Simulated assay, not measured.
Amino acid sequence: MSATVQPSDRTLVIIPTFNELENLPLITGRVRDALPDGVDILIVDDNSPDGTGDLADELAAADGHINVLHREGKGGLCGAYMKGFQWGLDAGYTVLCEMDADGSHAPEQLHLLLEEVDNGADLVIGSRYIRGGKTVNWPWQRYLLSKLGNIYISVALGAGLSDMTAGYRAYRRELLEALPLDELSNAGYIFQVDLARRSVDAGYDVREVPITFTERVIGESKLDGSFVKDSLAVVTKWGLEHRYKQVRDLVSAFGGLAVQTVREARKNRRAHR
């Protein structure tokens, strides 16, 4: 009897890189060790001056499960993932994943995300802030900033998610095909929030699983403080739009109920004459 075909049987792990020469062989090796042969890797390199792109080509030449997409210049994380998504969709993958190159997302935990996809989820987020999730080697100031920022985002957007800025994710292809990826906001890392809120608003099944986020050991973080201000400003705008829509829908619902009540009252009055 043949095994049941699962969406995760055709999974692509997208790993954007910029100056990740030391980290790249480590993360690709961990992915290949942790996951079955049905999982492939796409390295999206932004013309790294340290030779990461050349190393990616060498890794791909030695392993048929590794692919490389070269971009001209440093186009940002959002652009790298959008290119990676399109490459994966064109190649026929059924699940597409986001993963950092620096080891902060443990490949050994990717099976947790893929299992939820196979159980019916459209988007699964590896969360630091639900029960069982944690961060390792983060300064308390950064943890507090991220935690409070996510609380604010959750309250503002009413999405019911604890870690909307998280970048460890697994998407069903049907979700990515349905979303207007060319309309995503790319202020800072806000595109992650944008993808999650659009998925929730469209009625897709979005779930979180606990993961351990480990601060990079090799290289420097590419995140600067400006993203917080830019991102929260965008989220505030979305939050106001979300609340306005809620009020508008509530008024419309009450209006419809009032009209229906008046019609029924008139009908009953005529019936008793």
Score class of each variant (00 low, 15 high):
D118W: 01
I125P: 04
D118S: 08
A121G: 05
G133D: 09
V117R: 02
T135G: 12
K134S: 15
N119F: 08
G132Q: 09
V117L: 08
D122C: 12
V117H: 00
W138H: 08
E116T: 07
V117E: 02
L113T: 04
T135S: 08
Y129N: 04
Y129T: 04
G133I: 05
R131F: 06
G133W: 06
E116G: 00
L112T: 01
T135D: 10
I125C: 05
R131L: 10
V124Y: 02
W138Y: 13
E115H: 04
V124H: 00
L112C: 03
N137K: 13
D122H: 13
L123Y: 13
N119M: 13
N137H: 10
V124W: 04
L112G: 00
G132R: 07
W140L: 15
I125W: 03
T135L: 11
V136H: 14
A121M: 00
W140K: 14
L113I: 05
D118F: 04
Y129V: 00
H111K: 13
D122P: 07
N137D: 15
R128W: 02
S127E: 11
A121Q: 02
D118H: 00
L123C: 10
L114I: 06
R131Y: 12
K134Y: 06
L123V: 12
L113F: 08
G120F: 08
K134R: 14
G132L: 02
H111N: 12
W138M: 09
L113Q: 13
V136W: 06
W140A: 15
W138C: 02
G126K: 05
L114V: 05
W138L: 11
E115P: 04
N137E: 12
D122W: 06
E116W: 02
E116N: 04
G126V: 09
G133C: 10
